[in-house]
Computed example of a mutant assay.
Amino acid sequence: MYISISKQHLGNNFSQSSSDFVNYLEKENEGLLPDNQEQFFDQHNDKIPPEQVVQEIDGNTAKLKKVEPKFYSLTINPSQSELKAINNDPEQLKKYVREVMKDYAASFHRDQPVTVDDIKYFAKIEHERTFKGFDREIRENQPYRAQIVRLENDIRKVERGEITGNTTAMHNKIEKLKSEIPHKIAGVPVEQGMKKPGYQTHVHIIVSRKDISNRYSLSPGSKYMESSSKLNGKMIKRGFNRNLFYVRAENTFDTLFNYKRNFVETYEARKSYIKDPQQYFAHLLGLPTNERSAAFKILGKAGVQVPQVNIPTNKVQLALKTIKQFKKAMDVARSSSSIGI
């Protein structure tokens, strides 16, 4: 499970209206009959029209300055394994979102507990993702595409008499490159804008910066974690605990759907990898054989090429070279849009 929280802005300026973002989230509904369209929903209501979403988010910004975000975007990205566990059922995912927003509310550090009914949000399920330039498949196909484009240009130059060359040999080279290009779908080389295969269902959530009463600021993007400060001589609680939210959201999915989460799928594992790759690797190798095998399988599906070397199981004897190889492979997977780990 990968969950992101971001403020919505254009360049250095924050969006003053949610309309552009809402319109963007309507892209999958284009050309579909009303009964086949995905609608916005909140904690208690389904089939909320986009016009209402814009009106309510834009109307809930009392006393916010132009340089402050008016709303935040949460994206919930279940892995294909997690989607498989719920049969890619949008109703089950909707049920999960409503539980996650309870976790979101509870992660605010305030004098009075924040509940989900204090949060103004609207969510929308999407079913498709497309390949982008930073995806591993696009990057690994790029050298082949570059050679093909260069050869095609050379063929046109030969035909115009600008250069000399054997166009038959060039055509043969192009066909060879097309056959060798590493990533294809149904025989067609993967390129930007192509739809990704398999389950790609995910959720976008628009969350107002202000609470539902339009009186209090609830910012998950606060630079403060859980802390207290003095205001008018009185100590007050402030902040949002992202770590707590991510862990709770993960546990909620596991509890709700009886999901058996592997070590490499956990938020704590991803955090450990970033802070201390050696500790992450040591933990990975210390898993029981069946769990370790499953972990490597999950990593492989996410695009991580596990080093094919003799890996010592003793933590003291961990080979630094192997760890560096593994870290490099993990960095490749993390920089792509693969969210399976």
Rank of each mutant, 00 (worst) to 15 (best):
K260L: 10
F253L: 01
G187I: 12
N87D: 14
K275A: 15
G165F: 07
E82A: 13
I206E: 03
Y24F: 14
V332Y: 02
G233H: 09
G221N: 13
E28M: 07
H283F: 03
S217T: 13
F326R: 06
K132T: 10
K95H: 13
E91F: 01
L25Q: 09
K176P: 00
V97I: 14
E91I: 08
N290K: 10
S179H: 12
K173Y: 01
I205H: 00
Q278F: 07
H183S: 04
I48F: 03
V53I: 12
T252Q: 12
D20C: 06
E28V: 05
P312R: 11
A294I: 06
S17P: 03
K95S: 15
R150F: 07
Y2R: 02
R261P: 00
H127V: 09
G31H: 02
I155Q: 03
K132Q: 10
Q52H: 04
Q192C: 10
Q142D: 07
R248A: 12
I119W: 08
R98P: 00
I298D: 05
D35K: 11
L285E: 11
A333G: 03
K210Y: 06
E250M: 09
K7T: 03
T313M: 13
E159S: 04
Q317R: 10
R238I: 15
A294P: 01
Q279N: 11
A294E: 11
K195A: 08
E191R: 01
N29V: 07
D111V: 06
G11R: 06
K260I: 10
A85F: 01
M194Q: 04
H109F: 15
V67P: 00
I339R: 14
I206Q: 01
S213H: 11
P277N: 05
H171D: 00
K120R: 14
A294G: 02
L256Q: 09
Q279T: 09
L244R: 04
L231C: 06
E82S: 04
K271W: 11
A62W: 08
S79A: 08
Y246P: 00
N214L: 14
L93V: 11
T75L: 08
S217A: 15
D20T: 12
S208H: 13
I138K: 07
I138L: 12
I148V: 13
H109M: 13
D154N: 15
L25K: 02
I163C: 10
G286C: 08
V306G: 02
G193Y: 05
K301C: 06
V309G: 05
F71K: 07
G239E: 06
N29C: 11
S222E: 12
L151E: 01
K84C: 08
R129V: 04
V306I: 15
T313Q: 12
N251M: 10
E268I: 14
N314W: 10
E175N: 05
D154T: 15
H127A: 09
N243I: 06
S217H: 12
E128A: 10
F257C: 08
A186K: 12
K328G: 03
D20A: 14
N12P: 00
Y24N: 07
L256N: 01
D211E: 13
Y199F: 13
V54N: 02
E137W: 05
K65Q: 00
E191W: 00
S213M: 14
F108E: 02
S338L: 11
N88F: 03
A282Y: 02
E26D: 14
L74W: 04
Q43H: 08
A105D: 01
Q92P: 02
I341M: 06
T167Y: 01
G221C: 14
Y144V: 13
P197C: 07
M194Y: 04
V158T: 04
T115P: 04
H9M: 15
F326Y: 03
